[in-house]
């Protein structure tokens, strides 16, 4: 099996080299695909870290995670619009992101170039909004079910997901719309390869990597982080050791949902368009990334996100665009055949 995988991998690599040499695929095209894969992969990974953390500490797959992403994104963008649009339009229209069709993003110049302060405030509000939401949901739904098994919690979380999604529709409407303006990209040529980095792509990459490093340091260096790893390792022992488990659970939501909210905001910043079901649609890819990486491990979620993101874009070299997501999931299945518990299996590092 491993040999077969190696042969397939080598054939694919060889074919890629061949296509590059013969000019069927240019280096510039490949650059675009790889860069897009990294950008998408980092969003998936960032959102996946939160999902993996709540899974490892609360022992259930939170299907509402995708709607935490959407809710954070809407909260953050509403804040961005209010800050960027004060004086341009009335505050009610701004808060609902122009649901009535009376304000447009082109009037507000909402980009990191046109309104940097509004974007920074938006990122913070996106995180804070998702955190507040997750704590309220935990108190109302998950905490009363703390001693139930993972399946009951999973089903409850699907209910939560639907409620959140249709609350978003109720407030913001169901029509997708443009909320961010894309500034011109930084372009150039290096060693014959044309490159192009969007300001919003760069913002996303920098924020995502900074947050991932932050979570890593938190888990490895701080007392709270060590307690989180201890709890994901053995809840009963954590309790008899005197670790305040409910407090650790609250902090897990704070970090997991905060990352989800920021990931949602960055996703919309980079793509420009918001819709009530963006998070829900992304959740499938996030689950693929998290399972591929080994559910429960944050490093697995990051690596899994990059693998899924890259597979989704680089497969365009061989496949028509309709099939690229299938290729990403195909790769996930392939890896799980060799490593059934994911790439970081058994390393429960919260």
């Amino acid at each position: 099996m491993v040999l077969l995988g190696l042969i397939v991998g080598l054939v694919v690599l060889f074919d890629l080299g061949n296509k590059l040499m013969t000019g069927q695929v240019t280096a510039s095209t490949l650059f675009v695909l790889v860069w897009r894969g990294i950008v998408n992969g980092l969003v998936i990974g960032l959102a996946g870290v939160g999902l993996s953390m709540t899974y490892s500490i609360l022992n259930f797959a939170n299907f509402a995670h995708g709607d935490y992403i959407s809710s954070g994104a809407f909260a953050g963008w509403a804040a961005t619009w209010v800050v960027a649009g004060l004086g341009v339009a009335d505050i009610g229209s701004l808060i609902v992101l122009g649901a009535g069709g009376d304000v447009y993003s082109s009037q507000l110049q909402t980009s990191v170039v046109g309104a940097p302060l509004a974007i920074v405030i938006g990122i913070v509000v996106a995180g804070a909004g998702a955190i507040a939401l997750s704590l309220v949901v935990d108190r109302l739904v998950y905490k009363p079910m703390r001693n139930q098994d993972g399946i009951a919690l999973l089903i409850a979380s699907i209910g939560v997901a639907f409620i959140l999604r249709y609350l978003l529709v109720f407030v913001f409407g169901s029509a997708p719309r443009s909320v961010a303006e894309t500034p011109p990209a930084v372009k150039g040529t290096l060693a014959g390869v044309q490159y192009s980095f969007g300001y919003h792509e760069l913002t996303l990459v920098v924020c995502a990597i900074a947050l991932m490093v932050g979570v890593h340091l938190l888990l490895q260096r701080t007392k709270l982080g060590k307690a989180m790893r201890a709890m994901s390792d053995n809840k009963d022992l954590a309790r008899v050791t005197g670790i305040p488990t409910e407090q650790v659970i609250r902090w897990t939501w704070v970090i997991g949902a905060g990352l989800a909210g920021v990931a949602g905001y960055l996703l919309i910043l980079e793509s420009g368009t918001i819709a009530y079901n963006r998070g829900w649609i992304l959740l499938l890819l996030i689950f693929a990334a998290v399972i591929l990486g080994g559910i429960g491990s944050i490093y697995g979620a990051i690596l899994g996100g990059l693998v899924i993101g890259l597979a989704d874009t680089v497969s365009l070299v061989w496949l028509p665009s309709e099939f690229t997501q299938a290729a990403a999931f195909g790769l996930m299945i392939l890896i799980l055949l060799f490593k059934p518990n994911g790439l970081f299996a058994g390393r429960t590092t919260a």
């Binding site: 060590k226 307690a227 790893r229 994901s232 390792d233 022992l237 008899v240 050791t241 670790i243």
Partner: peptide, 25 residues
């Protein structure tokens, strides 16, 4: 202090981190 019979250490933490957790309070 209580030492359970089974699963009485945090396997994925280092020895020192295990001891630090003992003094969490």
């Amino acid at each position: 202090g209580y030492v359970p019979q089974n699963d009485n250490i945090f396997g994925s933490l280092t020895v020192r981190e295990n001891l630090e957790m003992g003094a969490y309070i």
